[in-house]
Design a protein around this nucleic acid. Structure first.
Lengths: 249, 249
DNA sequence: AGAACACTTTGAGTTAGATCAATTACTCCC
DNA sequence: GGGAGTAATTGATCTAACTCAAAGTGTTCT
């Protein structure tokens, strides 16, 4: 059974309607080309897709779409940062994902039935996204079935990563969830330590990990006082990941 | 960074190695045909795929694969029931999914790189699964690119459903997580009430929802005493889903 | 520069849920 | 049918994390 979402009608932030400029800048094109969903496309096919797409500028906190809205487009982040979240009817805001330049989001909508966004998407700072019509991508896939391989690889990876996110959330205590979250942020091969930039403000990381901001702050203070992390705003330096993993049990 | 899994070497349940009979029964074929990943296949292609697959019988609690094991096969459930779970090094067992006849699992491994299982899979009761070589499916997709559309639809759906699972887990209190879990189990269109069968023993539902079995039991007892559900072993009757949703806030 | 605002931290008190322990109910097997 | 083993429930504590409140700390805007 589906939960109906009373919050949808109460939420008053403006949803983006206006369509902005076509997409024509070189840097953005480069970024797009290096995404698995687009890298296999011939120059011509990519051009055609881009022609049907629009570049959208978003201001700080501006809403791109709402949950349950019909999904006619999916998105590619050119600059800035966004977050995906849900609201329940009591107004509690739960962060589900953060999205950086070079990432795609809502791309599963290409095959959703019915095509409705599963959450809200808003800019965390001023951002630019490429808005790609679902239909345009569908048509392209249909006329070039071999592109589907790349899409499949991407979708499979997405499913695995969501599975992994779910796995973190079945960890019962807040400290261990936070530790695992931090370990995941560490780049591969940083077994000897490394710096991590939180992709969200601390209060939203807390929401993502199903804890209160106060709890987040206290856990981090505790890790800091035990010499496990050094904190500098949203940059954390993790000197000994192995020790961190050890204590998370 | 990836967490290394000390538990892997400690866990002693036998992993299935023996290969069982080829797959040839009619009922199973029917079930397979109605799964989106296979429904579009021509009889010949399906036959060929089946010839390369094996039917595997699993006893109660028998392990099918371990997390981090190389993944050369994916699976389709013919009968019985399985669950996916992870173990952390302290031996805590966290249930991530339950799988019923007619479901596929580990199918994202077709595109994983490197192909290693992300969790353990074990039978919850005596079960039969079809073991399909990843390579066989890959080859088939390669020679019939149009089948990729069906696979894409399936993968997209999988990603959406994992996203939804994640969403439930960001709900901070145990009671509301349980309520949402129950609502999701209700068949569509059961707004006026309906019966739900827990797909897992209660203690594993608890683990899936990141709570203790005692907590699960107390919450259910509380819902029962408020006339919100009637409980009969693993069958729950939910008389007024709307009221249940209302109080979950 | 200073006001307004948003985010973060810290403290104190409370509570939801974990833990420990004991009992009851099922299920499977001989 | 009786005994072993597992799952579920119930009760009594205890503690991790929530809530409320207030004080810092940045950041943005005029």
């Amino acid at each position: 059974m589906a939960l109906t979402q009373a919050a949808q009608t109460r939420y008053t932030k403006p949803v983006l309607v206006a369509i902005n400029k076509p997409f024509d800048d070189e840097d953005g094109l480069e970024a797009l080309r290096s995404h698995p969903l687009f890298s296999e496309l011939t120059g011509k096919d990519l051009q055609h897709l881009i022609q049907q797409s629009r570049r959208v500028r978003l201001g700080h906190h501006q809403l791109l779409y709402r949950q349950d809205m019909p999904a006619h487009n999916f998105f590619f982040v050119l600059s800035g940062r966004l977050r995906l979240y849900r609201l329940d009817s009591s107004g509690i805001d739960r962060t589900l994902d953060s999205i950086a330049p070079g990432d795609c989001f809502a791309e599963v909508m290409i095959y959703a039935d019915p095509p409705r966004y599963a959450c809200y998407a808003e800019a965390l700072k001023s951002s630019e996204v490429l808005m790609i019509p679902v239909k345009a991508y569908q048509d392209m896939l249909e006329s070039n079935p071999r592109y589907a391989q790349a899409a499949l690889r991407h979708y499979a990876k997405r499913a695995v990563s969501r599975f992994h996110d779910l796995e973190i959330m079945t960890v019962q205590n807040a400290r261990d969830r936070l530790i695992r979250y931090l370990i995941d942020l560490l780049p591969n091969g940083a077994e000897e330590g490394g710096e991590v930039e939180l992709p969200l403000p601390k209060c939203l990381v807390a929401s993502r990990l199903a804890m209160q901001p106060e709890t987040f702050s206290r856990i981090l203070a505790d890790l800091r006082s035990n010499g496990l992390v050094r904190v500098n705003r949203s940059r954390l330096f993790i000197s000994d990941p192995r020790r961190l993993i050890e204590i998370s049990q």
